[in-house]
Simulated assay, not measured.
Amino acid sequence: MSTYLLRRLIYMVVILLAASLFIFCLYALTPGDFITNNLKLSPERKAELREIYGFNKPLIDRYLNWMGRALHGDFGFSLAQQKPVLTLFNEYVWNSFLLAITSTFFTWVIAVIIGVISAYRQYSWFDSLVMVLIFAAMSIPSFFIGLFLIKLFAVDLRWLPPGGMTTTGSNAAGWAYVLEVLHHMTLPVVVMVLLGVGSLTRYFRSNMLDVIRQDYIRTARAKGMKERTVLFRHALRNAMLPAITLVGFELPGLFGGSLIIEKIFNWPGIGQLYMQSFTVRDYPLLMGFTMFIAVLTVIGTLLSDILYHVADPRVKL
């Protein structure tokens, strides 16, 4: 195990170095930047700022300077927000994490339950209804679902707030603040669950259909075990093995998958900050966020491989 982890850590370092070079070149070679597109600045002031921030230096010098500071925890200074990139991450990333981890939890729980029942009752009215709803949810754009739910529950019924994380001007604290945040995050969580549960349910249904036809499932039933025990203790455990590979994509997806949702519901998360920075081409913040997603991707891939070995000892690392 230790040899495998050491080898994987070396691979991760090489991959992240290559990703950092690609990310930096992608943004650095894109025409225009925050200073160039700022119409309020005079040509002399633009030239001065480009000199201050080193935008007029050769590409390789800029990359080495950026990478050297990144290794010391400094990912640059946001020109649009006038704050260090890591400071902005600390202010916004936890809001995105709260929204994403909650929706991911409900997505997996609902997908597992519906996938198991749908596979067990294959071709029944329940299975047919589930498949129709799954394809409907996957076909409708996220912004349409979000706007429709805002129209229905916030405008017409007035049950839920249309957006934001707290009520404007609210001074709630303690449990009152927690309840207020939960009230505001209900709609975005529902939309994210609807968008993610479809494909995941199909995945679990397909895996369960393969597993429940195996000989050991027939043997467990022949021994007189309860059907619930056979499904959730024997069949589901083995059907979960292929799904473990999805963990590597879920970790970066916690922050990368809610960009549009945060914009629609005006949620103060890292996704909305990324969209704002992309509009004004605030490249230091964009590079820091993209590098953050790259780090989460390689960490998630490593975790999925280790979890797969833990779940199935027959798999050799």
Rank of each mutant, 00 (worst) to 15 (best):
Y4E: 14
Y4T: 06
L5G: 06
R7G: 12
I10G: 12
Y11I: 14
M12P: 02
M12Q: 07
V13D: 13
A19N: 08
I23K: 02
I23Y: 06
I35F: 05
I35E: 11
N37E: 13
N38F: 02
L39N: 13
E44N: 04
K46H: 12
R50W: 13
E51A: 09
F55A: 12
D61V: 03
W66H: 04
D74P: 05
L79S: 00
K83A: 14
P84K: 07
V85D: 15
N90A: 15
N95H: 09
N95M: 13
L98V: 04
A100W: 04
S103R: 01
T104S: 02
W108Q: 07
A111K: 00
I113K: 05
I113Q: 11
A119G: 13
R121Q: 15
Q122F: 09
W125I: 15
W125N: 08
S128H: 08
M131W: 11
V132R: 06
I134C: 12
I140V: 11
S142G: 11
I145W: 13
G146H: 03
F148N: 06
F148K: 03
K151I: 12
L157H: 03
T166D: 10
G169T: 04
A173H: 01
W175G: 10
L182K: 01
L187V: 09
V190S: 08
M192F: 07
V197F: 06
V197M: 07
L200K: 01
T201W: 05
R202I: 14
R202G: 08
F204Q: 00
F204N: 06
D210C: 05
V211N: 02
V211E: 11
A220Y: 09
A222Y: 07
G224N: 00
M225D: 14
K226P: 05
E227D: 10
R228P: 00
V230Y: 01
F232K: 05
L241P: 14
I244R: 00
V247S: 06
P252I: 05
L254D: 04
S258W: 04
I260A: 06
I261P: 11
K263P: 14
F265R: 03
N266C: 14
L273A: 09
Q276R: 03
T279L: 15
Y283F: 12
L286F: 04
F289E: 09
F292W: 08
T301P: 02
D305Q: 01
I306M: 11
L307T: 03
V310Q: 08
V315E: 13
